[in-house]
Design a protein around this nucleic acid. Sequence first.
DNA 1: CTTAAGTTTGCATAGGTATGCAAGTTTTCG
DNA 2: CGAAAACTTGCATACCTATGCAAACTTAAG
Lengths: 359, 359
Amino acid sequence: MTFECVNIHFSWIIFSDETLRINMKKKDKITSIEVAQLAGVSQSTVSRSFSPESPVAVKTRERILGIANKIGYQPNAMARSLITQKSNIVGIVISNVTTNPFYPEVLDLLSRKFQQNGQKVMLFSVHRDQNLDDILPQLLEYQVDGILITAATLSSAMAFECQRWGTPLTLFNRYIPDSNASWFCCDNVAGGRLVGQMFIDSGHKSPAFLAGNEDTSTSIDREKGFMEIMVENGVKALKEVGNYNYNDAYAAAVRLVDRPDPVDAIFCANDIMAIGALDAIRSAMNMKVPEDVSIIGFDDIPMASWPSFNLTTVRQPVQSMVDDSVEDLISRINTPEKPPNHKVIMGELVIRGSSRISI
Amino acid sequence: MTFECVNIHFSWIIFSDETLRINMKKKDKITSIEVAQLAGVSQSTVSRSFSPESPVAVKTRERILGIANKIGYQPNAMARSLITQKSNIVGIVISNVTTNPFYPEVLDLLSRKFQQNGQKVMLFSVHRDQNLDDILPQLLEYQVDGILITAATLSSAMAFECQRWGTPLTLFNRYIPDSNASWFCCDNVAGGRLVGQMFIDSGHKSPAFLAGNEDTSTSIDREKGFMEIMVENGVKALKEVGNYNYNDAYAAAVRLVDRPDPVDAIFCANDIMAIGALDAIRSAMNMKVPEDVSIIGFDDIPMASWPSFNLTTVRQPVQSMVDDSVEDLISRINTPEKPPNHKVIMGELVIRGSSRISI
DNA sequence: CTTAAGTTTGCATAGGTATGCAAGTTTTCG
DNA sequence: CGAAAACTTGCATACCTATGCAAACTTAAG
């Protein structure tokens, strides 16, 4: 037996097993039509009252907004998006958010900046090697106005898919040649060279590179720049892999130092690994930084300046990379015919106490 | 003079100043109707083919999905939300994402877990003291199915607003008495007691509490538990404020130790402050941890176990707090009449090297 | 007071999907 | 083979807002 009582905002359903369930009907959403009725105007006028550019008599608009406010009306963004063909949502795909403190900062800045520009953020947090082919369709399904991908690798098939949808795509610290995606990267090759030169100039004889994940462009490029300098100076450099995390870097650092011909300088592809290496050399090997081994990182996360680490590192210009990325994406949202931008931004060597300066 | 040429996917507009602008029309979205035409079925059937529960002949569905796939059709989630009254979006409001490594982890776990449950995440990253009264309306405007707020304080007016909209609200490490929000918190009072008892049992004579932000319930509750134990044992405890960040904690720790009657134990309201205090005591004061001063933190962030810190701390059961929160929110989305849950989950004291154990 | 210009409003429709209902089709089984 | 049951499909409508167009109204100018 079913008993229903609509129109007064809830309904009873009596089940045969004598259980009484009170099923609060989802509070009927208040629509622009109800506001219109209360104000004695048409729905159009209510709608226009909510877009500042639309022409509505000042008095009318005030009255309508007053009523709307009183009964708690708010436009339905879904319906609006449907008709305007603009969702005002951007998708952000981010990885490494737990493993590298650099990325929470990036995420925070990105999300704030989009917010300031009136864009909502739909977030996907992924593993570094997670396949984005499942993620992008979800974003496109929600008609996002644009997509920003941080530190995760995208198949060029998916980049093409975005292009087909006409959804602009911006990459942060990644690039896809021959796609029509924009990208904004720290100049990783130059950063690597900076560090290499620093080691050479300060008289280090057996430097090493500690790689992140070997399939990431960031690690590859930092290594490339570093090794270029080594070759140019006829210096042989060792290499180990630390997978961009503390523990692996800790172990790798031990391997680099615990050998007949220990290294005297390690360039780590990010700060977290540099800190791991530093801890390993001090705690596990009982050696001194920078006296026995110089250590230089990459990113300049806040931790790098803490007294216990005092890490020399290559600072990524986060703020300007974020500004550039967001501005690019938003401008390409507003002007779809705009071509993608590619910008490589110089990092800055921040010299602290973890590296020797003189010979 | 304006010249327009629609129907062939772009239009020219010639401005009086002779500037030629080519305005690529946004690629027309492919709709279910087009798929229907190609498949020789009605739009209804196409729609049904995309909901596994809806009855469609197997052969028909295969053909439709094949065509859809070929021409790159994907349902429009906005339109779907409009009619189903379900957006499949949850709002997450998070703060401290850059200042406390605990929260990136929380965010990552939350976002993954929602994802697994088929919910998209709309993210707002805020400052701890930022007013959420501007944020919530934006979420409600997008018809989010539910809202989860982490470590940020919500006015009870806004909590009521959610209730009025029928949008379930779950708080993570915060609570609002007398609201109909759910909340899931670590048992901060009990955690404080745990630490207090530990200091007493191991014979510390002059302990101190290093508060986070004094207007947060987490800091208040941890202090409360700690001080209860002190009072019960007739011990006087000092207090300083570190605002949940490294630098302030560093300075506060110096003040606690650099006095005629220095403290011999500091309970810090989170791990980041504990690390700041630890650095201060070692680097700035040249004293030993735990020989001169014991330090205990709260959270058990990954860094706490690094050799250079080796921090004793109260572990927050992140995973189960996240699981509980997400499950609660989703179940209240699916069953709106469900009452809110309130759960306080015990933390666990993880004893490492930064605190003395014996007398 | 008349007319033109400017301002404000309403009508009607579009945006893309989901779904109750009824009609149509196929299968089942006696 | 016939009737009932089960399955498939199409029709029509609803979800809520924005906006082009024309009508109604107001103001300015003569």
